[in-house]
Design a binder for these strands. Sequence first.
DNA 1: GAGACCCTTACGTAGCGTAAGTGTGC
DNA 2: TGCACACTTACGCTACGTAAGGGTCT
Lengths: 171, 171
Amino acid sequence: MPKQQPSVATRDDEATYQIGEVAERTGVTQRTLRFYEEKGLLQPPSRMEGGFRLYSEDDVRRVEQIKRLQKLLGFTLAEIKEMLEAEEVREEIREERRQQPDAGADVKRARFLTLIDVTERQHDIRQKVEALNAMKAELEERLAHYARRLEELDEVGKVSSPSATASAPQS
Amino acid sequence: MPKQQPSVATRDDEATYQIGEVAERTGVTQRTLRFYEEKGLLQPPSRMEGGFRLYSEDDVRRVEQIKRLQKLLGFTLAEIKEMLEAEEVREEIREERRQQPDAGADVKRARFLTLIDVTERQHDIRQKVEALNAMKAELEERLAHYARRLEELDEVGKVSSPSATASAPQS
DNA sequence: GAGACCCTTACGTAGCGTAAGTGTGC
DNA sequence: TGCACACTTACGCTACGTAAGGGTCT
């Protein structure tokens, strides 16, 4: 018997991808997707009758966003969660303003206070972003260094072994 | 794997820093220093009579190098260990060549084979470096995106809280 | 009815953080 | 002598990896 009708289905009219497809498309593992869900970074997707998860296009985009923030910018999942939540709040308010631009002064004030709140809670995150700018220069320097090293390696490799194979990685 | 040098301490005539000083200068914790030692990324430093660790200037540099490889380029400690070991081997050979440029053909051949070996074992690492070049473009794009976002946040913040912290200049 | 695919449960790993209890050095 | 500093031991946390055992599906 059918078990669950999600109490609030944001939009699962579009939920058509099984976990394996999402994993493949986003380049993360199924474990990771379940883990993100467990930690609240992804909202629980809808399910098929048998319990299989069904993801939407939006979910896919969200995963990609998480991955970018994590891998390229080095944020922790906790930070990412905060950022995404804050971003959602801002979007909500933006929507609200669009739909009710002439709300009462108190409502407007409340919206504003909310914005200030999420903004302040992102303070450390902002610092991290600034630090990244500094890091970028260093990164480029490093890359140049390794580029030179690679050239050295290439020269050695070229002169030497015609048959270079067979080494399995790792200890 | 070539691991140990002759039991001669490379030069602890210079070993003068206690763990706390090294931690402070390199920005890592004492725990991290002990952990690196435990994992073989740092060779065990000399000790005082009571057991206190004594680090040299070289050790400090090594820690800084590890941190750069890890934080800026995202290598794992295992990879870093391999890289540093390989780099050491290359330096040894460079030294050898300088001191005995006219060794026998077999010795020269042996040196060369060693170079090839460490080179091949760094193959996956080289790929990672190449991937980083690709990532750099994406990183810059992201940074631009967040720079815009920061401006938004700044506007909100400016209007609102007078005691909002000093925003750093810079791009 | 047989894979390919998915489920939960749960233990393993990396890279440290963080005590706890105790010894060392200036 | 005090007290900052160091030592070992060991359990905790994050962000997953990796079976194990068992249902589900066009």
